[in-house]
Design a protein around this nucleic acid. Structure first.
Lengths: 239, 239
DNA sequence: GCATATTTGTCCGTATGTATA
DNA sequence: CTATACATACGGACAAATATG
């Protein structure tokens, strides 16, 4: 589309094109964020300033700025005089994340008496995104589409700030998805449940959709919690 | 407790005591945050790195780390190659902030079927905090107590993350309170309304309390919006 | 438990680019 | 349009904290 081929490197030079309206620190944060969310930097990974700085070709100062924002996003934890690590979620974190999801997503759905076409469209699109991924056995992408569906649900609140916080919470949640080592088994069942919620919303039954959503969240929480509990016994949190 | 007297300076040396578990950047962020929220750094104020760095006795690198976190908290805006400024809220921001307040605070209240004593206590304390401040004509403190009351309402969700985001949104909101130049006229009426909400909660009428809260928020939004609209015509936002 | 190596925290100097009087 | 002020980003320095043999 642009000059030659862009898809190859997802690195620093990426956004260096015509509109360089972002600082180096932001670009670095973006790269690290992607790496963390896709799982190539798993929880508890240490990120030494020297190493990462050289790998990305930026100075330590710039890198530290990027670390600050990712720490604020709760994707990294900053331990003073020890460095930064990829966050490892505890069971408490997981419980709290589902608590806020229930609060925010359900409230967003209930914020509407009925839904117009422009509100339903993103929901349909993300459901289809998941179905398409499933048909090609791209189960990790199914998980991503699932997150997009729930972001779209949150979008029903019609609030940029709700969008932002929900996006951040769902990103945080992805940190724990990596412990689910069978992505198909984990993500596939939710395809149907998302469709169910969508169908209820299309039928105008907001209340039933909200209750289905709540049930969905409760079950997902319980499912992850069992896996997480067993994995916490083996790998202990670094203090 | 420590060496001599500590209460005098609220500056850098503040937390330098026994437990120096915070970095300079965090302390700087904390100082600037306080200055912004108390209004001594009003919206649109520019914060040149050199000037502020010298004033606080920190290097520009450290200061930039602090700027990053405050930008992420939406108290500063970072304009590339131009520097950072204290955020000036637009009418859209205000509308969105009240939208999320309605969503989060009301949902937090409704999250409980009935309230126990440990849940009511912080609500009572913050109401009393406001009444005490009013009796002494400390109207700015009345505003602070009001924010504390609503934080306590959000606390009914029982979620650290809800607490954190609500705290941040209410901090952001304080940016606009400064345009209300008569703090008494602005804050005094809410004393009674907070008490009303508390009384309903004590009576166990969650639904009525939630509706009173919603009405409260609608009215406050409208009130600020009129003042803000007139002030926006005079002082224009710097792009 | 100690001595040493590594890494972070913080500062400074400086070159380059960008915005503005 | 030029001059000036300022932000961006880098690299080096060193003390203090932490990890390692």
């Amino acid at each position: 589309m642009g000059s030659t081929d862009v898809t190859a490197f997802a690195d620093l030079e990426q956004a260096r094109g015509l509109l360089d309206r972002t600082s180096t620190a932001e670009r670095v944060a973006s790269i690290l964020r992607d790496r963390i969310l896709e799982g190539s930097l798993p929880p508890s990974t240490r990120l030494p300033e020297d190493l990462i700085g050289q790998a990305l070709g930026v100075s330590r100062n710039t890198l530290r700025e990027a670390f600050r924002v990712l720490s604020h996003e709760r994707l990294l934890v900053h331990q003073i005089n020890r460095g930064v690590f990829v966050r490892r979620l505890t069971a408490d974190d997981l419980v709290d994340l589902y608590r806020v999801r229930r609060l925010v997503e359900v409230a967003a759905v209930r914020a509407n008496d009925r839904l117009g076409e422009e509100q339903l469209r993103p929901l349909r699109e993300t459901v289809e995104e998941g179905q398409a991924a499933a048909k090609d056995d791209r189960w990790v992408d199914v998980g991503t589409a699932n997150i997009h569906f729930h972001l779209a649900l949150g979008g029903l609140a019609g609030s940029p700030r709700v969008d932002a916080v929900l996006r951040q919470f769902l990103a945080e949640l992805r940190l724990v998805f990596h412990v689910m080592n069978n992505p198909r088994e984990f993500h596939e069942p939710y395809l149907e449940r998302n469709l169910e919620i969508l169908t209820l919303l299309e039928a105008g039954d907001i209340d039933a959709a909200a209750r289905a959503l709540e049930a969905y969240l409760n079950e997902a929480e319980r499912q992850i919690l069992t896996v997480l509990a067993s994995s916490e016994r083996t790998a202990h949190t670094p203090r």
